[in-house]
């Protein structure tokens, strides 16, 4: 049993950090709306991807390219279609796989790039054996990144029923909503993960300072408020504080990060092939520390050594300073 550690790279320097810290594979995306972390200043040019892949391959590390948003309607000139360009660039650069979500992009890849290995992005939200089986049969998808809605028990049952590999998130930012099926961001701001590759985009973020504290607003909606001494959070819509039924609460999700380090052994037993770390928008310091820690976790699990104190080691890097095992434990629901 060997678990593959799949690590984030928002920039070439983060890619090098992940490779040096012990990643088995690194995932990244192009600097445009074709991937779900389309934030300003982030991601790779075609040239940077070529160079990054050369570097990773020299160290025996695979590179997976995320092209996981949904193709825009009404692109008249196929030669100028960013999603088609991205697929061609990824293949040309020698990507070991592409991570896709959209039926149109999958169909194009399967038809025009038969040599590319296809992974199904979490953004495709395929959570049942029937849906996963469909993607495998229709497009030859080899691996599915599991939606963050399944418990470990459900993953074990699922793996019995499907013929493709599964990849499960083990650390990082946590969407409480089913990814790829959330339009909260565009409702407030006009820009969404599916259409633009961004959630709660920074150009709509505003921090208003007042003596009693800071109010974080997204497109004018007060998403959260922080006392002067309290840690501030990035105003991601679903992690905000809201009022419903007369109660003020983090209705959708508390500002916490996923840390499933303690569940790695059970995920392995459930038949998971790869463990994924979230955080392409985070710095290389984060990438290096999280990858090193999970490399140690995986080694401890594989050799039956004492568990690594991952929660303690990573506590300073997580949002809100708090960690959860999310939907992997049924109580989360």
């Amino acid at each position: 049993m060997t678990l593959e550690l799949v690590c984030p790279a928002g920039t070439p320097s983060a890619l090098r950090a992940a490779v040096e810290a012990g990643a088995d594979a690194v995932y990244c995306g192009f600097r445009d709306e074709t991937n779900a972390r389309n934030f300003p200043g982030l991601n790779f040019s075609a040239e940077e991807l070529h160079e990054g892949i050369r570097f990773a391959h020299r160290h025996g590390v695979r590179v997976l390219v995320a092209i996981n948003t949904f193709m825009r309607a009404g692109i008249a000139d196929a030669a100028a279609d960013p999603w088609k360009i991205a697929l061609a660039c990824a293949e040309d650069a020698g990507a070991d796989a592409v991570i896709l979500a959209d039926l149109a992009v999958l169909d194009h890849a399967a038809t025009h790039h038969p040599g590319l290995r296809l992974h199904l992005s979490v953004q495709a939200a395929a959570a049942t054996p029937e849906a996963i089986g469909f993607y495998a049969e229709a497009f030859g998808v080899k691996r599915v990144v599991l939606p963050r809605v399944l418990s470990v028990e459900e993953i074990a049952v699922l793996n019995q029923a499907i013929a493709v590999e599964t990849e499960a998130f083990v650390f990082g930012g946590l969407c409480p909503m089913t990814e790829g099926r959330c339009a909260l961001s565009s409702y407030a701001t006009g820009r969404s993960p599916n259409l633009d590759g961004v959630c709660s985009p920074p150009e709509h973020v505003d921090y208003a300072q007042a003596p009693e504290g800071t109010t974080a607003r997204l497109a004018g909606f007060a998403i959260d408020r922080f006392a002067p001494t309290q840690l501030a959070g990035y105003p991601t819509l679903c992690k905000g504080s809201f009022v419903a039924g007369g109660k003020t609460s983090h209705l959708f999700e508390d500002p916490v990060s996923l840390n499933a380090a303690g569940l790695v052994a059970r995920l392995a037993k459930a038949g998971v092939t790869a463990l994924k770390i979230e955080g392409r928008q985070r710095g290389k310091g984060y990438v290096a520390e999280v990858v090193r820690t999970f490399r140690a976790v995986v080694e401890a699990v594989e050799t039956g050594r004492d568990p690594v104190e991952a929660e303690r080691r990573l506590s300073s890097l997580v949002e809100g300073g708090r960690q959860t095992s999310g939907a992997y434990r049924k109580q989360w629901r």
Binding site: M71, A101, A104, T128, E130, G133
Partner: peptide
């Protein structure tokens, strides 16, 4: 898409919660 394999070939409606964002899809 869970229902798609068994429904393929028979007429069906695609609801707004299925991601159909372009001509290709």
């Amino acid at each position: 898409l869970t229902g798609l394999p068994v429904r393929t070939g028979l007429p069906f409606v695609v609801g707004p919660l299925v991601n159909v964002y372009s001509e290709g899809a």
